[in-house]
Nucleic acid binder design. Sequence first.
DNA 1: TCAAAAGTGTTCTAGATACACCCATGT
DNA 2: ACATGGGTGTATCTAGAACACTTTTGA
Lengths: 229, 229
Amino acid sequence: MELTGRKKIKRILIAVDCIIFGFDGAEIKALLIKRGFKPEKGKWSLMGGFIKDDETADDAASRVLYQLTGMRRIYMEQLYTFTDVNRDAAGRVISIAYFALINVDDYSTQLQLAHEARWFRLDEVPSLIFDHKKMVAKAQDLLKQKVATHPIGFELLPSKFTLLQLQNLYEAIYQMSLDKRNFTKKMLSLGILQKLNEKQKESSRKGAFYYMFDYSKYDRLHANGVKFL
Amino acid sequence: MELTGRKKIKRILIAVDCIIFGFDGAEIKALLIKRGFKPEKGKWSLMGGFIKDDETADDAASRVLYQLTGMRRIYMEQLYTFTDVNRDAAGRVISIAYFALINVDDYSTQLQLAHEARWFRLDEVPSLIFDHKKMVAKAQDLLKQKVATHPIGFELLPSKFTLLQLQNLYEAIYQMSLDKRNFTKKMLSLGILQKLNEKQKESSRKGAFYYMFDYSKYDRLHANGVKFL
DNA sequence: TCAAAAGTGTTCTAGATACACCCATGT
DNA sequence: ACATGGGTGTATCTAGAACACTTTTGA
């Protein structure tokens, strides 16, 4: 870049903030923490942290996600960088927001308690510090848009899931109901689900077959994205 | 965000870099400058600059675009934030990349000369400093993706354009040829083009009608995006 | 035997694609 | 009169949408 205005630059801190989505079988939820320090102590907020000078933003986001969830290799993607001059009460801080998807079942209750974290339905997110509400809204947009063409919905489900669970997931994301026959026809036609010989017996007498998402088939068939919906 | 690792943080500078696309009637091109200062003086690079402490990243990108083009109100959108620890030879600098579209005809030759700027076909972009090549690639992806569902292609054309010019634009972006009848049928069916009573006579004896993009009709009809292709 | 969820096929419709000729005009 | 690009219509195909009954099995 060109050197313009370099002299005027004061210290600007760089943070990452993570919008973490989960799916409880019926609703998409966001994981928020009760902020345990000043400023804005006691208010709800996204989990975040400052970037260290030897790590990338991706590294920082992974670290922050690990602290909160104890999980590594979480699906995660850079969302947007928020730079309003007065967005953080404590001084000039820009924040690189990350969007993450986790399977709720893998998430330890212990850590949840330690951080005073809670899952919130998207229509019940409380007021959040700074511009975190905007971040959540933007993440929700990205989720809707991305899940229509990329196989990321599976990140929100256990590795074995039934077709009905998958349908419920899409219905929750889009807030609409889908036709069961059309949905299964479409999903199976993509050739990226592997049917197991095992049934989920909890929710019905007949039992529903489990499926797994087959990453290698996906990569082979749909290198350039699919149309899920 | 949580306070983690704050103590270890050294100064990190924040820059913006702009990927500027234009369309010359046949090809999509990117505007690059010959860097006039060290490090990497004399090499090709994107136009960029540091964020001042009283401006947002959007402000900084607008400023940088104005410096290079003399134009205000350029279509512009935040693309991605690049944070590799050693991306900039001069020290730790993160860069918020912006994606911009301009109408080549509006661009002053004077300013072009002052910055030693040049338009490059996307398949002839020379080697660039730092990670600017990655930025260009990412911007090209976004262009392809976004132009399919949002009316941003018009930013690359004069306000009055013929249907053939519009088709050429899409053909250039997607590197494929389209059927003239199907293309015009589709475009006109969207109800967002206004036909003028004026013909472009330069390129044929018969002359081709000019059209304009009608923003208000677009907003009314397609509040949630359209499918152009 | 019955309640409760699982599984499955056909018709209809709209949008996308493929395809070729006549039109208007300046020289 | 003719060369050049401008403009237009129809048939086919494909994907999505609408729609309801049978199957399985544990209690």
